[in-house]
Design a binder for these strands. Structure first.
Length: 295
DNA sequence: ATGACATTCTTGT
DNA sequence: ACAAGAATGTCAT
C-alpha cells in the first residue's frame, strides 16, 4: 500500500552498489563479531557464499582496504591509537592549514545554526527537499533547504520509509517534497573525496539546541582518521561532567557523516552506539581508513 | 569481566 | 514542572 511512497529513484548502477553493500555489510558484521579470532578470507567468503578472490576484489574496491586490513582498522588497538595521538585537535584553527597535502584533507563545510525562533517552530515554514542516493554505506537520505544541507540519514534498501519518518519527526512542521535532482549533487559531493575541496565548501544548516550545536561544532573539528572520546568532547565544550549528555547530543545529530559523529568513541577506544547501526559506524571508520591509505 | 549508579541534557506528558 | 531515557564513565565486586 505504501508503494507510492517508496521513491522510484534508484538507478540501475546504484542498485548493484546497494547489493554490494549488503554483502560488504554482512562481512563487516562477521568481522566485528569475531575479530578476536582473526577470521581468514576463506571463512569470510564462505559466510556469504562467495569465492575468496571475488570477495577480496569486491571488498577492496569498496573500501580501498583488503578484508584483513579492514579487520585491523576496526580493532580496539587501532581506535586507541586514534585517541592516543595527542595533537591539540580542537585548539588549532582547523579551517586554515589543511589545504596542504593533496587529498589528505577533510570535507570542508560552512555551517550556520538556525535562529532560536526558527528552531522553536520545529521547522515551520521550512521547505525541505529530499532524495535517496546510493552511497558506500547503503542508501543515504539527503535533505536540503535553500540554505544548505539540513539532514543526512542512512538506511538499507527497503528501509526508506522508516528513515524518512525518523528525519521528519525532528522537524514535524516543515513541508516535505521529494526532489532527487536537487539532492543528487549534494550526495555526489559528500561521498566522493575527490570533491572535497576548500574552494567548494558544503553549506550546512545546523538545527538544534545551543548545547547540541556546540557539540556538533566540536565534532566538525575532528579531522578524518582521528577520534575523540565522549568525555574529551565534554571537556572541550566546557562541560567536563556531562559526557553522557554529549552522547545524547551526538546521537541527535541530524547530518550524520558530514558532522562526523562516527568519530566519537568510548574512552577505551571501543566503538559504542550509532543511531544508524553500529555496523555502519564500523563501515564508515573502515572506509575512512581506506581513503587515508590511498594517499 | 560484570554490574550498579552517578550526572547532565532533552523530550514528552 | 516532572520523569524517563540516552551513542558514557567510574568504581566496586
Amino acid at each position: 500500500m505504501n508503494a507510492m511512497t517508496q521513491p522510484q529513484t534508484v538507478l540501475t548502477d546504484e542498485i548493484t552498489a546497494g547489493a554490494d553493500y549488503e554483502i560488504v555489510r554482512k562481512v563487516i558484521e562477521t568481522i566485528s563479531e569475531n575479530y578476536r579470532d582473526q577470521p581468514s578470507l576463506e571463512e569470510l567468503a564462505a559466510s556469504v557464499n562467495m569465492e575468496p578472490t571475488a570477495l577480496q576484489k569486491l571488498f577492496t574496491r569498496w573500501a580501498g582496504l583488503s578484508p584483513k586490513a579492514f579487520l585491523q582498522a576496526v580493532t580496539l588497538d587501532h581506535a586507541r591509537r586514534l585517541l592516543a595521538s595527542d595533537m591539540p585537535l580542537l585548539d588549532t584553527a582547523y579551517e586554515v592549514g589543511l589545504s596542504g597535502p593533496g587529498r589528505l584533507h577533510d570535507l570542508f563545510v560552512t555551517h550556520e545554526a538556525m535562529s532560536p525562533g526558527e528552531f522553536k517552530a520545529k521547522g515551520a515554514g521550512l521547505a525541505m527537499r529530499y532524495g535517496f542516493h546510493a552511497c558506500p554505506f547503503g542508501l543515504a537520505l539527503v535533505m536540503i533547504t535553500d540554505r544548505g544541507l539540513a539532514g543526512l540519514a542512512f538506511c538499507d534498501p527497503g528501509g526508506e520509509r522508516e528513515a524518512l519518518a525518523d528525519m521528519q519527526s525532528r522537524w514535524p512542521n516543515a513541508r516535505y517534497g521529494e526532489d532527487v535532482a536537487a539532492t543528487a549533487p549534494y550526495a555526489a559531493r559528500i561521498f566522493d573525496p575527490a570533491n572535497w575541496r576548500p574552494d567548494r565548501p558544503l553549506k550546512v544548516v545546523l538545527i538544534g539546541t545551543d548545547f547540541q550545536v556546540s557539540v556538533w561544532n566540536a565534532l566538525l573539528k575532528i579531522p578524518m582518521g582521528k577520534a575523540l572520546a565522549y568525555s574529551d568532547i565534554a571537556r572541550k565544550i566546557g562541560k567536563p561532567d556531562a559526557p553522557r549528555a554529549v552522547g545524547a547530543a551526538v546521537g541527535a545529530n541530524p547530518v550524520s557523516f558530514v558532522v562526523p559523529c562516527h568519530r566519537a568513541v568510548g574512552k577505551s577506544g571501543a566503538l559504542t552506539g550509532y543511531h544508524w547501526g553500529l555496523t555502519r559506524k564500523r563501515a564508515i571508520l573502515g572506509w575512512e581508513a581506506g581513503q587515508l591509505a590511498q594517499v
